[in-house]
């Protein structure tokens, strides 16, 4: 693995150099306290130190709204939408975000492969960057260290205010070819990054906890605070559920079919024609969300489907904390185990 040193002040030049490959998407400031992944217009505006963007990187592969077709109500026919995707470089991406894309890959390829996702995903390059965990990040607890480099072509590790650039793939190598502001360096380890938020059990014990947590009273407690707004799933980087709706123009002669992000936390999500609702109560829905992250797919794939970005917690208007729910379930599990031992 090649390692180079790169001055912080030379990063905008690196971004400009990467522009030769294609469009660059990177974190930008949005207002005073928020960040957003946007297409780079000016490399000096890219933010290198950020906690998390409001919307995850999935929005670049599964847009919040996407037109699937135009149709005519006069001729009852439709015109497909042809996607033309430019090659894209995703710059300054945190390791949990990259891991969420690898999980989305799996979800989108399972069953019938999702065509538009794949087309957007195919020519992508990823450049990672290290970060300082805040009070919400807990990615280490779900098996994703800050320096996890899987999925990246290049990785920028901050050491003493400047960067070490790791070249991880052939694609990464071609991206920096001809860029002269880097010098060969010995890899160093940054020591000052600690996670404040932790899950008390190793993540591979969580499916076991969830095995017995279905009827826990913790769900009712969480549900009593949940306002059912769906922010947690919309900001979740591995959630991908959607709705499909038709919109008709005012002349009622034509329209378009569009899909948009949906949320299993919204009350009508599992409702069928005729009114039957298979997850009618908030408690059914809060539980479903966490089982999707720690049990159902995890049983099959051996990985939590939560990447510990902390978004669902940081952006929850009711201050519901996902790691706190996990730790409560773990405490309850331990008490039950202890009780069994005493009884035996």
């Amino acid at each position: 693995m090649e390692c180079y040193s790169l001055l912080r002040t030379d990063v905008p030049d690196l971004i400009d150099h990467l522009g030769a490959y294609g469009e660059i998407v990177a974190p930008h400031s949005k207002g005073d306290v928020s960040y957003s992944f946007e297409v780079v217009q000016d490399s000096n505006k890219v933010v290198l130190d950020y906690d998390r963007t409001l919307l995850p990187l999935k929005k670049m592969f599964l847009p919040p709204q996407e037109k699937l077709m135009d149709f005519s109500l006069k001729s009852l026919s439709y015109t497909p939408i042809k996607l033309h995707i430019k090659p894209r470089v995703f710059f300054a991406i945190h390791s949990y975000e990259m891991q969420s894309i690898l999980r989305l890959d799996h979800s989108m390829l399972s069953g019938q492969a999702e065509s538009n996702y794949l087309r957007r995903r195919k020519k992508s390059r990823f450049i990672g960057i290290s970060f300082k965990p805040d009070e919400f990040h807990f990615s280490e607890s779900v098996g994703i260290p800050i320096e996890e480099m899987e999925g990246f072509d290049l990785y920028l590790n901050e050491v003493d205010g400047d960067y070490q650039l790791y070249v991880l793939t052939k694609n990464g190598h071609s991206l920096i070819e001809g860029f002269e502001k880097i010098k060969t360096a010995e890899p160093e380890i940054a020591e000052d990054r600690k996670f404040n938020k932790k899950i008390r059990f190793h993540y591979n014990r969580l499916p076991q906890v969830f095995q017995y947590a279905y009827h826990s009273e913790i769900w009712a407690e969480v549900a009593s605070r949940c306002v059912g707004c769906g922010s947690c799933t919309l900001t979740c980087p591995t959630c991908f559920c959607f709705d499909v709706k038709d919109e008709v123009t005012v002349t009622a002669e034509s329209g378009m079919r569009q899909r948009s992000w949906d949320s299993c936390m919204l009350s009508t999500f599992a409702e069928i024609a005729g009114g039957e609702n298979f997850r009618e109560k908030t408690i059914n829905r809060t539980r479903h969300r966490l089982y999707r992250k720690f049990k159902y797919i995890t049983d099959e794939e051996g990985l939590p489907w939560c990447v510990g970005c902390g978004r669902c917690t940081a952006f929850c208007p009711a201050e519901i904390s996902l790691p706190d729910i996990l730790n409560d379930l773990i405490n309850e599990d331990e008490k039950a185990q202890h009780h069994h031992q005493v009884m035996a």
Binding site: V244, C264, E276
Partner: peptide
């Protein structure tokens, strides 16, 4: 079983029964 199978291809999530896609 009847569920709200919106996409039919195991993606949109509406038809999930616990961890199973009813449409698949």
């Amino acid at each position: 079983l009847e569920r709200r199978m919106k996409c039919g291809v195991g993606k949109c999530g509406h038809c999930q029964i616990n961890g199973v896609y009813c449409c698949q």
